[in-house]
Design a protein around this nucleic acid. Structure first.
Lengths: 211, 211
DNA sequence: GGCAGTCTAATACGAACGTATTGCCTCATA
DNA sequence: TATGAGGCAATACGTTCGTATTAGACTGCC
């Protein structure tokens, strides 16, 4: 725990290398190109090694999806702090858009797992978890940006700020993921600047209703 | 051409039965469960029949995606007419949400192809086409609802209504697809009433900025 | 009746898949 | 040093995949 040691419990380095290799394949060629052999080859190990760490392919996919969720959580949490609530919202949501190659990979991966979750209950559970978590985070940010105002106690003022924050967060998350979906699934139909402009337009519209 | 004959050129009835069978499999078990044998079995025909109408599996998938796009176009166009522009917008966007079993199937299918399009350029082209088309339709509806106002000439007044309509349409489509994505990929995390409320919240926020 | 063309089925082939089995190699511990 | 457990690789098995090949059944036309 002196320097950079993972506080996590039982994650072997070989295991994260395998997950990385898997996610690389997903980002580049899609989830249906993932096979035990491909993962082993991409990680430079044998099939037996993959089987040693993941007893079945489904377990391997679930572990990979969990890793994706962890990455999302890290990025969202890391983009939070700042004095301007509006800027915080923008920063968090920007992390979910494919604004550069790294984020485009992440979006492709996330989309692949989300699509599979539509017909795979085990993955749907994981997806529900990350949606809940990110939405709560966003709801706090919205509460700071428009629902709770600058300071002081609650009570009189707007209608129901808590409900509004949750609704705005749900909508903002959906719009951002929708923009990301459109961008990566249409091969350049939505430019990065158009994505950014749409996000700002969204925040304008959402925050205008709460001033 | 006397009664109910398709005006389309060369669409054999057996071919649409095959496409229907394929989309049924996609809606129920996902795109990666689609195989030539499964489609043939679901349609009650032999492998040879499938091969006769679709020389390769990729051609079969492309034809199925084209059929999906046609369905979306039909539904969006059918929901258009009405006196209230706001109601028209709501009706069109509601068609894209998984508000009942039929629409949930359609969303699952659309999502499956969109996810595959992220790493399949041939499908990305089709996806780009449908996005462009639906967005244009929505832009007109937004123009009628808030950009162009009630009547009369253009010129002075709001900023750039055409640009605003396109931006609002892009955002509304992204938010709706994002809501649909979250709903079907999380197994009930987003209820139908929450989807409807989010959509109304979205329209409120977008149209408020153009009055 | 013969015959070309389309439609349908049956079957075969090579490749890739997920998984099970087996056996080295390494290393901490007694 | 002996040993036993775990990390890692090699290989095999049975299945399923996409596609090719072949042949039979039905149609309209001469």
């Amino acid at each position: 725990m002196i320097l950079g040691v993972e506080p996590m419990s039982t994650v072997k380095p070989r295991q994260v290398a395998l997950t990385d290799a898997l996610l690389r394949i997903v980002a580049e060629h899609g989830l249906d190109q993932v096979s035990v052999r491909e993962v082993a080859s991409a990680a430079g190990v044998s099939i037996g090694t993959v089987q040693h760490y993941f007893p079945t392919k489904d377990a391997m996919l679930a572990a990979a999806f969990t890793e994706v969720v962890r990455r999302i959580r890290v990025r969202v949490a890391a983009a939070e702090p700042g004095p301007d609530p509006r800027a915080n919202l923008s920063a968090v949501l920007r992390e979910l858009l494919p604004l550069d190659a790294r984020r485009a990979d992440e979006v492709r991966i996330q989309l692949a797992f989300a699509a599979r979750a539509a017909t795979a209950p085990a993955l749907a559970d994981i997806q529900r978890g990350v949606l809940t978590e990110v939405m709560c985070e966003l709801a706090e940010a919205f509460s700071a940006a428009g629902g709770g105002g600058v300071a002081g106690g609650g009570g009189a003022g707007g209608g129901k700020p808590v409900e509004w924050s949750r609704s705005a967060a749900r909508l903002a998350l959906a719009a951002t993921d929708g923009l990301a979906l459109h961008a990566v699934s249409s091969g350049g139909w939505l430019s990065t600047s158009e994505q950014g402009a749409a996000l700002e337009h969204l925040l304008d519209a959402l925050l205008a209703g709460a001033e």
